[in-house]
Design a protein around this nucleic acid. Structure first.
Lengths: 237, 237
DNA sequence: AGTAAACTCACTGGAAATAGCGAGTGCATT
DNA sequence: AATGCACTCGCTATTTCCAGTGAGTTTACT
């Protein structure tokens, strides 16, 4: 089994097109003997993408009804780091219960596990595996494969990024140290006066940094600049 | 070897204190036969932490001189996703060359690899392994262990989080859908007028959402609120 | 040695955000 | 049934920020 997964990871790395990747990823259904495997972006940075083995009907219904707004799997992803069993989520709320029923009817399965994958430019994606089985069987399955799912999720993500941005290896935007400082302090909640004070420069000067950072980031205002800088990993508050 | 790593991951998961974790992590030096292993936070969210086997002298020098400002390993981390060989970084700039020399003298080693680890609340950490050997030996070493490093980095991170925030499983802050919409659009660069237009509500109403979101997030202004919401994974631009 | 970039400081009108107030509707969990 | 919460709209005074332009010094790369 571990050899099979090693081979799978190598094949993911070598995929030349998204269609090929989709095919390779779909084979995980056979490797793990499960209903479905899904890999999809959770946010709106860049092109939204999804590699899924779900039926078209369910996928379209999900999209058209904006079910990601109530889907506990997606909502839970934002707060989680390690792979998580869908059972550990909050299914008590009314919309969540309704969603679970609809997902069952859509063939998703009664069990599932998801791996959050966070990329350097604010990308956020989910790799999920779902199946229909008892709690006992599922628990044993998870115990055996959690680390594998982590690896698979990261490799798929890296492969998609490589296909979307071939040859991109460097920075898209480079902020000077002072520009970085300025945005970091503003993101931390300081107003310009306090930030300038902290950096021991005049407020006038600070504004120049904000301006040039905003220009480099092609941002329409300070808030946008801070948000973009965070999304691109240029600052961390 | 793979069994050894499996055991190691389990031990990391079961650590009850940071000191214990530090000891366990330090054993990686013997498992992989390398000079040093390091795990440290890259940003300033929460308590900064570091598990390192470096000598105290180098660690203190690094901190006091704020070398993370010139350290290509740290700077490169922001833009990367997969484990990366230190050789793939830009060591051409003058301060970088000087830093490399100083790091050599500090006993770090001439080879290294780092794994970026991104958490759900804006945490960003690096797991690194460094050694002294030839390029050929190092290349074979990386080919054999890249997936292991990925797993180890993530497990250490999860363990530290579990120790820092015992029992924390849910959201710290819950924003209503409209509040989320408001912050997302502001983070995307829209001004209040445009954002209100997009949401088909009056600008007055939009301001109420911004206010209440700011209050919930304990943020001092809109920029801060957007930054905090992003850092906590409540919005994604 | 020259050029590019970063760093520093300054001014101003118009736009946006903050902080404070109040009020009614509807849905959902309890 | 009730309580809480989300959603919607409105007003105003004060503070802060934006955007545009200009210019001199220092640092670093070529």
């Amino acid at each position: 089994m571990q050899n099979q997964i090693g081979t799978f990871l190598e094949r993911v790395e070598q995929c030349k097109t998204l269609i090929e990747l989709n095919t390779v990823v779909a084979e995980l259904r056979h490797i793990f003997q499960v209903n479905h495997v899904v890999y999809h972006s959770v946010n709106s940075l860049g092109e939204p993408y999804a590699l899924a083995t779900y039926g078209q009907e369910w996928a379209e219904y999900y999209e058209s009804e904006e079910l990601y707004r109530v889907d506990p799997v997606v909502l839970g992803a934002f707060q989680r780091f390690h792979p998580y069993d869908w059972k550990s989520l909050d299914w008590e709320k009314k919309p969540a219960r309704r969603f679970f029923q609809e997902a069952q009817d859509g063939g998703v399965g009664n069990q599932g596990v998801s791996v959050p994958v966070r990329g350097p430019h604010g990308e956020f994606a989910l790799f999920s595996v779902s199946h229909t089985c008892s709690d006992e069987v599922w628990t044993r399955f998870l115990a055996a494969h959690m680390p594998n799912f982590l690896l698979i999720g990261h490799y798929i993500h890296a492969s998609i990024r490589a296909l979307e941005f071939p040859g991109v290896e460097g920075n898209y935007v480079v902020l000077s140290p002072r520009e970085t400082d300025a945005l970091r302090l503003l993101g931390a909640g300081l107003n310009r006066g306090r930030a300038a004070e902290q950096l021991k420069i005049s407020e006038h000067t600070l504004r120049v940094y904000i301006e040039s950072a905003r220009s480099k980031l092609n941002a329409s205002n300070t808030t946008h600049a801070v948000a973009k800088a965070m999304a691109q990993g240029l600052i961390n508050i």
